[in-house]
Design a binder for these strands. Structure first.
Lengths: 276, 276
DNA sequence: TTCTATTTAGAATATATATTCCATATTGAC
DNA sequence: GTCAATATGGAATATATATTCTAAATAGAA
């Protein structure tokens, strides 16, 4: 059996197994049925534990994997694990798959696919993980502010730039702190305790963002932080902070989840303001 | 340490780790940060492989787990595995819960839901509609340029700001045309036929973007346009243009699809450049 | 039925993996 | 600075795990 037509993802594996369902020896068919019915067990279990559940011998699992063309059971198990971790195949793997299936697509489309998937995954993850109470607290704090100071550099700058624009249209007073004129520290220095700082920073945390935010926190200016880990230098500066982790493709992190969150904050704050 | 207060699920684990983030020894903090950032790797990896990725010794992982009260690393790993097990089958359920929960509790969560769905829909739509041939042409034209002039104002400014940042990191020469100093027309006037203009504009097309782009097209500068309709004033300025329609929530259009496209162009152009 | 080709069970083995241990390094209090 | 307490690196070890192997069982063809 050649290595070329090995299934690379769960869908392909299912197809392969379904195609052979009729001509499989009894015990192998038993394994196949169990595997498709309990994919989680297969992903996490050991050969021994899975064999026990499927009521076969451990060696049967190995033979099953080999009969599908895998070298051993571990290779087959990887497919089940990838399914759970929703691993986005990287560019090189995509190209390989493409060649294997001889479909003629454009290379750039693959890259677009990758970024689309990263965006979708990021949003899905944040939907599951976002803490509604903390979101509410953020909106409350921001809507209480006279002026919102937006701090975000490098990768986070597009986010704050968007918010400055949208808040502007909605009549919420903001100050976009950028490092352009080298006056960032002076600008944000005008913030008072009636204002609020909204800071964005992600690994590797831009030192200027961290320094500016720390300085304001030390002065007792209310702060809302958006960052990617409890270990972020922004996380321990404020009791109100939101964790956002973006998936990446080829090392380029999506911004889709952060942007959706930014839009949410913008609209929610404007709406609450309007009611007061 | 007693066994009683051991975290039983991922959320509790995160809380526990976040609480100790400040008072953790260096290497243990390093493990904690890695674990929260790459929960999938921790779920599936071996002590050796995880240690390698986190750049610590295998024994550090065991000590980390023990410092949290677990008997060994394997017990801790179970929490990470449970997290993945729960997710896939219950996803639809969780979404429903989120909606139900949001309705009773927090209005802001509903807004976030709305923006998430708009983002997901936008990306899905673009994946279906994007013409690979036109995408390829865009990459070709952009990668042939000496300098890429990025034009995008208002809602499109975050996109061009992102591209300017990412292109910069990748060593591709760009000029971000913004209206800050009122010098946009002069800046973009330096463009030559060896360069390329990449313009973004969506309804209602910002007059300045349209004017700047028209002027350059009239001078014969190569142009790639990203816009939202064949009737856009940008669409008939260039034979190379891409249509992107974003879904909106409460009148606020998503930017997820445009951003995924922008990332694609950035990476594809940089890659093609690298090969020449 | 009889014979042959497959398939299977289970033990044996080789490999991978988590954990422990201890000498060395680092940190923090005085 | 000095000392004690704590943390770390890396080798050693015990354990778990996948895989292989062989005799026995089963199925299929004549």
């Amino acid at each position: 059996m050649s290595t070329i037509d090995l299934p690379q993802d769960f869908a392909a594996l299912k197809t392969l197994i379904a195609g052979r369902a009729g001509v499989m020896p009894r015990r192998l068919a038993q394994v196949a049925a169990y595997a498709l019915e309990h994919p989680d067990e297969v992903a996490f279990g050991t050969v021994a534990s899975i064999a026990e559940h499927a009521v076969v011998q451990p060696s049967t699992l190995v033979r099953f994997a080999q009969s599908l063309g895998f070298e051993g059971f571990s290779d087959l198990q990887e497919i089940f694990r990838d399914r759970l971790r929703e691993r986005l195949p990287n560019y090189a793997e995509r190209l390989q798959n493409l060649r294997a299936h001889a479909q003629s697509h454009a290379k750039t489309s693959l890259i677009f696919d990758g970024f689309s998937e990263a965006s979708e995954k990021s949003i899905r993850d944040l939907r599951e993980r976002l803490d509604p109470a903390m979101l509410e607290k953020s909106v409350e704090r921001l809507s209480g502010a006279e002026t919102i100071y937006l701090i975000g550099l490098r990768r986070s700058y597009p986010i704050t730039a968007y918010m400055a624009y949208a808040f502007g249209k909605l009549g919420v007073k903001t100050l976009l702190v950028d490092a352009r004129g080298g006056l960032a520290a002076e600008e944000v220095g005008f913030a008072s305790k009636q204002d609020c700082v909204l800071a964005f920073s992600f690994t590797p945390y831009a030192s200027e963002t961290v320094a500016l935010t720390q300085a304001q926190a030390a002065r007792g200016i209310p702060l809302v932080a958006i960052t990617d880990s409890p270990f972020s230098p922004l996380a321990n500066l404020s009791d109100v902070w939101i964790e956002v982790q973006e998936a990446n493709f080829e090392g380029f992190r999506s911004m889709a989840a952060t942007l959706a969150l930014a839009m949410t904050l913008t609209v929610a704050v404007a709406e609450r303001r309007g009611k007061m």
